[in-house]
């Protein structure tokens, strides 16, 4: 098991700045101090992942260790982002956790069908929310072995 390494990036795809702040606060309180990149809509998320647009100067081979993906997003919604990520050879293995308010069955089903690694509903109670974010971070950044960068399936 690897130790909590701060060089691993988390991509947080979330349009609501308050939710962004709460999520960052939850990471802080769980002592997760990795770099968190925030994308505020679906297009920005894909730009980051594919190193294009505003993120064109970023080395495309460096992929985030974890993508936390909200579903309801401006421009391109979360499920469309997920589809694009899974269809692209470069990104298809990136761990993606859907982190959303929706408990609609069809969102769950489509999320998993498109290859989400986890589906977590954001609790209203901040104490519970912080706990959920902490567990997510520990699991995906520490417990889980990510696919090797540039590795071929």
């Amino acid at each position: 098991m690897s130790t909590l390494s701060t060089d691993k990036t988390i991509l947080l795809v979330e349009d609501n700045p308050k939710d962004v702040e709460l999520t960052l606060r939850a990471f802080r309180k769980s002592n997760i101090s990795n770099r968190v990149v925030v994308a505020r809509d679906g297009v920005e998320a894909l730009d980051y992942l594919f190193a294009r647009g505003a993120h064109a100067d970023r080395p495309a081979s460096e992929l985030p260790q974890l993508v936390l993906l909200d579903l309801k997003l401006p421009k391109l919604d979360g499920l469309e982002v997920l589809r694009a990520v899974r269809q692209d050879e470069r990104t298809k293995l990136v761990p993606v956790v859907i982190l959303t308010s929706s408990l609609e069955e069809q969102d769950l089903m489509r999320g998993y069908a498109l290859g989400a690694n986890s589906y977590v509903r954001k609790p209203i109670d901040f104490v519970q929310f912080a706990e959920a974010v902490k567990q997510l971070g520990l699991y995906w950044l520490v417990t889980n072995q990510a696919p090797p960068p540039g590795g071929k399936a």
């Binding site: 308050k18 939710d19 709460l22 606060r25 579903l71 308010s101 954001k122 109670d125 929310f129």
Partner: peptide
């Protein structure tokens, strides 16, 4: 209903979260 689920809950989380903060 979908909007209710998503949109109404989001501000609630802020109310709760920042009260806790």
């Amino acid at each position: 209903s979908y909007s209710v689920a998503h949109d109404l809950r989001t501000p609630l989380r802020s109310i709760d979260g920042f009260s806790q903060a």
